[in-house]
Design a protein around this nucleic acid. Structure first.
Lengths: 350, 350
DNA sequence: ATATTTTGCGCAAAGGTTTGCGCAGGGCAC
DNA sequence: GTGCCCTGCGCAAACCTTTGCGCAAAATAT
């Protein structure tokens, strides 16, 4: 905001009109308020000459609308979130909204801080990918009827619009595939406990095992954060188990990255020494030493849907009821899962 | 902004004081304006009870400071930019600033639009990774002394703080390595023409060739955007040349991704059929079928330095002069460059 | 000619905050 | 009893915009 920026007042002076009329002309209310063509033209001309740009701060204050939406995200360094962010920004801009981005680093207090700040700055609505272990602060937003859509992780007890992925189905299908390939000892490296996405993935894992008559072994459940170091450390532990699992289910792309690193360091080979199934896809996945078999999320559409839902809420459309959109993930088979048995045999086991 | 949000006025009422005093107490000016401990305590109590949060819009309007900085970025989907963004957001928040993120999609008019919008919204300063073919709009910002720092790409004719990478040195060293390994026919897939980063990289490429007594062949210069499809299409062209080059220099990670895809589709092998040298590193690079030899940018520090420089400008510190920070990239040798000759022989050639 | 409507425009308030300036009242010295 | 200082606090303007309401003049009707 340069100190020389021209205001509606300058225009009024220059055009010999009142600020009132200027405002009306500039907001296309000339008709409604019967401003003469004559005056309107003078005003428009003056505005152009002064290179007038409305002060959105003052505007927001008056209108209680800032055309800004807040995005609260757990970790932009995670390629999955980065992707979603990109689409959110694009669609938001197309719909006339700016995006202020806050990274919570998977930290609940920080999430609260960011949300408060965003509200203070007068955002028109929020897209939140919550850390997810607590929903009280979100409940408050709902009560104050702040336009809000949850992405990637949601709360069943919370009546909000949300767009999530069917983590359960994704994990289930993936593990099923592993089982069909003859794997029986499958380790899982989970993400942050008690979050929507983690719970679904772990549940899918255990239920798929059960379907094949295998009792899930708590010893095979590792991890506790979606981060790379978790993948690295836990994989090292897994690989040094006396009775080593034949497959690892890595529940995020960052975990996968860490796992790959550990496997590499230990001089092992995917899939011959260990099979890997990953949640989330990466652009580079097909070109890895061993192209990864993954459960891919529809990350393209998630952001887009979320913003549209949010803007509908902001505009008061679709206010009637909240929508929970559940997207289907997609198992893409590449080479990181080794087939230990013929398919027929595996089916017989079931 | 819930419609029930309490204001400084509510506090004044509740505490039986004037808004003036409330403002002063809340802004730690109680001492300066000699407010009694008594009154101050009443005010603080009322504020807490009302769960008061300042309206940053009103604040920004009055103070001409929003504690918000704008980030203008060409393409968040590019992992390099995503990384930098993340660090910018983190450091900005640590310094008390919010970040509004705008993606220009490498599109100059869109860049201008975003910048104008950001200014309208009253950002305190801008971090821009410019599209870079035109600097007139940036020149205007400089003239209006808007706090500004350019990242990744800068303009020699523009007196702004900036943090860039030594693209020339990076490319030069990389190509030198290729040459030392015995490569003589080296194709380059360049990024967006007439941008700072591209120019440096291409220049480094040609100069390194010349140093080895090789006349750069215009036929071997491909590309024209940093995007994935460029990498894909151009690689296909390169690989079907009658006199096929022995190496490809891909000037961005996205180009590299496309190149890998093309190579893969054509059933070729890196580095036996074709060597690849990439600008930018990717987390997954070490784990690729053929671990990539890359020129890695110090993406960790770039964002951090940029924000610190910007905040210094905003706060009026270091106003005295602009700083151009040039970071050194780093050649990391992995396996994607095939050694065609013994080192001694290569040196003899030089 | 007066009465009524229409046309064109602007006053002033509102939105929430910060801050220069000055006001009231108590205490003190003369 | 008059003059002065100090303490504690509030008035009102400023930041820039939008909008309900009303006012004056011109156009039309009677």
């Amino acid at each position: 905001m340069s100190r020389l920026a021209s205001t509606i007042n300058d225009i009024a002076n220059k055009a010999g009109a009142s600020v009132t009329s200027v405002s009306r002309v500039l907001n296309n209310k000339a008709g409604k308020y019967r401003i003469s063509k004559e005056t309107a033209k003078r005003i428009l001309k003056a505005a152009a000459e002064l290179d007038y740009k409305p002060n959105e701060l003052a505007r927001g204050l008056r209108l209680k609308k800032t055309h800004t939406i807040g995005l609260v995200i757990p970790d932009i360094s995670n390629p999955f979130f980065a992707y979603v962010t990109r689409n959110i920004q694009r669609v938001a801009h197309e719909l006339g909204y700016s995006l202020v981005v806050c990274d919570t680093d998977e930290n609940l207090p920080l999430e609260l801080e960011h949300i408060n700040l965003l509200m203070s700055k007068g955002v028109d609505g929020l897209v939140i990918m919550p850390v997810g272990q607590d929903a009280r602060h979100l409940k408050r937003l709902v009560k104050e009827s702040v336009p809000l859509v949850l992405v990637d992780r949601c709360f069943d007890e919370l009546d909000t619009s949300s767009v999530v992925v069917d983590n359960y189905a994704g994990a289930f299908t993936g593990i099923e595939h592993l089982l069909e390939c003859g794997h029986r000892r499958i380790a899982i490296i989970q993400g942050l406990a008690n979050t929507y996405s983690n719970t679904g993935r772990v549940q899918g894992y255990t239920d798929a095992l059960k379907k094949f008559g295998i009792r899930p072994d708590p010893e095979l459940i590792f991890g506790g954060s979606f981060r790379e170091e978790t993948g690295y450390n836990e994989t090292k532990r897994i690989l040094s188990m006396s009775e080593r699992p034949t497959a690892i289910f890595a529940t995020s792309d960052l975990i996968t990255l860490g796992a790959l690193q550990a496997i590499n360091e230990m001089g092992l080979d995917v899939p011959n020494d260990i099979s890997v199934l990953a949640f989330d896809d990466t652009d580079f996945a097909p070109f890895l030493k061993c192209p990864l078999t993954v459960i891919a999320q529809p990350k393209e559409s998630m952001g887009e849907i979320a913003v549209k839902l949010l803007v509908d809420q902001i505009k008061g459309r679709g206010k009637q009821q909240t929508q929970k959109i559940i997207l289907k993930p997609n198992l893409v088979k590449r080479n990181s899962v080794k087939r230990l048995v013929q398919k027929e045999v595996a089916v017989a086991h079931a």
